[in-house]
Design a protein around this nucleic acid. Sequence first.
DNA 1: GTTATACTGAACCATATAGTTCAGTATATG
DNA 2: CATATACTGAACTATATGGTTCAGTATAAC
Lengths: 118, 118
Amino acid sequence: MVQYNNDTLDAAFAALSDGTRRGVLEQLGRADASITALARKFQMTLTGMKKHVGVLEHAGFVTTQKIGRVRTCKLGLRRLEEEAVWIERYRLLWDARFDALEMIVEELKQKEKANDRD
Amino acid sequence: MVQYNNDTLDAAFAALSDGTRRGVLEQLGRADASITALARKFQMTLTGMKKHVGVLEHAGFVTTQKIGRVRTCKLGLRRLEEEAVWIERYRLLWDARFDALEMIVEELKQKEKANDRD
DNA sequence: GTTATACTGAACCATATAGTTCAGTATATG
DNA sequence: CATATACTGAACTATATGGTTCAGTATAAC
């Protein structure tokens, strides 16, 4: 019934709603990194960082690969395409809405003028 | 120490991470609406919808005004500017990162060729 | 072979989210 | 005035989030 759902988008925006995770994405934009390196940089336990990476991985923003004892994290193939599209679509809606409001305001002004003439 | 935080962005992305709230934004993009109207449209109690509207309001996406017994919700002044900027910046990072990767791949290919010639 | 490193998983904690019900208050309507 | 409507707030439930500690396992280094 509720077809307003889109789990992919939910997961993506939820992943982006945490400062640490946004920081991790920016970090990985500069260079791949191990869990340990990220944990140190963001002053957090390994376990804590692992969870954040898990969230980013689940959202498709990050992929990881374990070689030996080191798990290397890198940016995934998902490049915020969908999110950008959603936001853009919303912005268009917003613009349209406020253009409409302006028209109404304009209309009211005209009516007022007409009333003034009475 | 953790300067990766940005509560505004946190609140914005968190607000967008729920399908019902994204639906409400789209709805308000078409026309202002009361809590009751939104609750009916999204098949939810008044109290539940009030909470969603509260989240959107807190994030700055929606403003409300109570006249008589009706609280009318409309799009706020915040038009996802910051979010669009963040996402765009990330996308540039992403592109740069993958361009760099491509260069490395290219480099490896060259080395391989050189080895083949040995 | 011992020790250090890097991660992993389970369990726990505090708080937040998404929803509900129920009992109000305030405002329209007849 | 009586009743219906629209919202509000408190309290409760179930689940998720962001973090921790602690006890492992697997691999690398000496």
